[in-house]
Amino acid sequence: MIKKVLLVSVVFLGLLGQGLAQIRSLTLDEMFQLADQNNNRIRLYDLAISEAEQGVKVACNDRLPSIQAHVELNYIGDGVMTDRNFAHAVHADMPHLGNSFVLKASQVIYAGGAVAKGIERSKLQKKEAELEYVETRQDIRFLLAGYYLDLFQLNNQKRVYESNISQTRLLVKDMKASYRQGTALKSDITRYELQLQSLELSLTSVKDKIDVLSHKLAIAVGLEPD
């Protein structure tokens, strides 16, 4: 079982006044919390739960009475009558202002179970969103734990390669000295130089893998990859 004491170090390479890098150590629990807050997949399903909860509330509102109000205000000008030649106009006073107010209340008495089924469907959608959230959250945590263990293993390999490279460089140096003294062959030097190149290539590959995993880990927990 992975314990809380496992740590992963995240280095922020920024200028912090004195130009020093800031090192932050995170426990797995802290990484999980950051993922819960910042991971895009988890946040997406969290939003889906919120939308489903609103859907349940809207469906339940169908059981409640609904009230509609309509207000109307109008203005009518005075009337004017003329003959066919638009002469001899006659002015007629008329009321200018008018208004109306309509209040309508309604409630569903019987809908053949449509309201109850709508509520049940909304609750099922909410339950589905919650299950998807839990599953996604668990997948992300397994992914983070896997990244951590891979980084732990790769860093161990990195230290081993660096140690072997240091030793091999000393051997190459000794072989060259022995060759000058006539106690070693040129092929011996070549063999150790090839071994040194192979170790350096392997070290480069391990460092590249560490960079890739570190980038993926930073994105998963919502930190800046740089």
Rank of each mutant, 00 (worst) to 15 (best):
K3G: 13
K3V: 10
L6W: 13
L7Q: 12
L7E: 11
V10W: 10
L13E: 02
L15M: 04
L16S: 01
L16Y: 00
D36R: 09
R43Y: 04
R43S: 15
L47Y: 09
A48P: 04
A52D: 09
K57R: 15
N61S: 15
L64G: 12
H70N: 12
N74R: 10
G77N: 15
R84D: 14
N85V: 09
A89M: 14
P95C: 04
H96M: 09
H96L: 08
L97W: 10
N99R: 13
S100W: 06
S100V: 06
F101N: 11
V102E: 15
V108L: 12
Y110T: 00
A111G: 10
G112F: 01
G112M: 01
K117Q: 11
E120M: 08
Q125H: 10
E130H: 00
E130I: 02
L131I: 03
L131F: 01
Y133L: 06
Y133N: 02
E135I: 01
E135W: 02
T136V: 03
R137F: 00
Q138L: 04
Q138M: 02
F142C: 01
A145N: 09
L149N: 14
D150W: 07
N155K: 15
N164P: 07
I165L: 11
Q167S: 15
V172T: 09
M175I: 03
S178L: 12
Y179N: 03
Y179T: 05
R180Y: 02
A184M: 01
L185I: 03
D188Y: 01
E193Y: 03
L194D: 13
S202V: 08
L203S: 10
V206H: 05
K207F: 05
D208T: 13
I210C: 06
S214I: 05
A218L: 07
V221W: 14
V221A: 04
G222A: 11
L223Q: 11
P225R: 05
